[in-house]
Amino acid sequence: MDSEQPDSLDGWVPLREDLFPEPERHQLRFLVAWNAAKGQFAVTCHDRTAQRRRRERREAGDGGCSWAGVLSPAGFRGAHRQLAALWPALEPCFPPLPPELDAASGAGWGLGRGLWALLWPLLWPAPADPGDSALQELCRQLEHYLGLAAEGCGGATVRDVLFPAPGDSADCEGLSEFRERTLRARLGQTATRLHQVLQDHGKANTMVALMKVYQEEDELYQELVTMATTFFQYLLQPFRDMREVATS
């Protein structure tokens, strides 16, 4: 029996030493600031590793190295839920956001931030807004949190959650936005049909034809009033809910 030679290279295929290199971890720098005018957090992310490479290659521009966007307090909480689902250790790291910030952002209602800001103090009195120093400290905590999230979930994942591609949001529509858009469209269609019927008055050359136009006009008037009432009640419902909660 031939003795085996463990140091023989017969039948072996040499591989390059760097065939499966570990991916380089990019150093990300997050900046968070509170935008009082919009009632949202302004978030910026800089890829320090990519920026350093560009400088070494003497490339101009900063494309693909920085991202920016705005997030409401509710949006920040939603981003945290996604990231914590990927890395549960991140759950206790998210700083609590004061409820006053939700009031400032007009979260959840579609009647416009100006009307919300007008009615909120009357229907749901809230404490004064956090001071500048408290907001700055909160922003620093959020920056630290995002840095931890990038380490645990990966920088690309955090960027995708905070700064989704422009086409992503266009593929989906919220239920409230869909209902409001549908009601607006039906109201507009009814008004257009009524306008067309009113123009048919001059085209009716017999009493029978004119009576038919009047009947259709009455039906469209009733439909327009019903649609307008439904749409108005839909817009008022959030404020009715707030009043009920505030007075209960």
Rank of each mutant, 00 (worst) to 15 (best):
C139I: 03
W67T: 05
P164N: 08
D129V: 13
A150W: 04
V213C: 04
Q233M: 10
V158H: 03
R113L: 14
L119G: 10
N35I: 04
Y145N: 00
P166K: 13
P23N: 00
A134G: 05
R179H: 05
C172F: 15
L83I: 11
S248H: 15
P125Y: 04
V208M: 09
A170H: 12
E91I: 03
S169I: 12
G75L: 12
Q189R: 00
R52L: 13
A117E: 03
E22I: 07
E4Q: 06
A89E: 11
G75M: 08
F231K: 10
A134E: 07
A191L: 10
L111R: 12
D10P: 02
A246V: 04
G155N: 06
S72E: 11
Q27C: 09
T182D: 14
L235H: 04
R240V: 13
E137Y: 08
D18M: 06
A228E: 01
L220Y: 05
H144P: 07
E244H: 13
Q40G: 06
A104Q: 01
P98C: 09
P125W: 13
W120R: 15
A117D: 08
A42V: 02
E100K: 03
T226H: 15
P88Q: 00
L28D: 00
G78P: 02
G39N: 00
R186P: 01
Y145W: 12
L115W: 09
P6G: 05
A107E: 01
V208N: 04
V245D: 10
S66M: 14
P73L: 07
Q136T: 00
W109K: 03
A74C: 07
G174Q: 09
V161A: 09
A191I: 03
G152A: 13
D62N: 10
P125A: 02
A209D: 06
D7P: 10
V197N: 06
A156S: 07
V70M: 12
R186H: 10
W34M: 09
L90T: 13
E151L: 14
G61W: 02
A246Q: 14
V70S: 13
G167C: 05
C45I: 05
A37I: 12
L224H: 13
Q237K: 15
W87T: 13
G69R: 05
D18Q: 11
D168F: 07
H26Q: 08
E59R: 08
A191D: 09
R53N: 08
G78S: 07
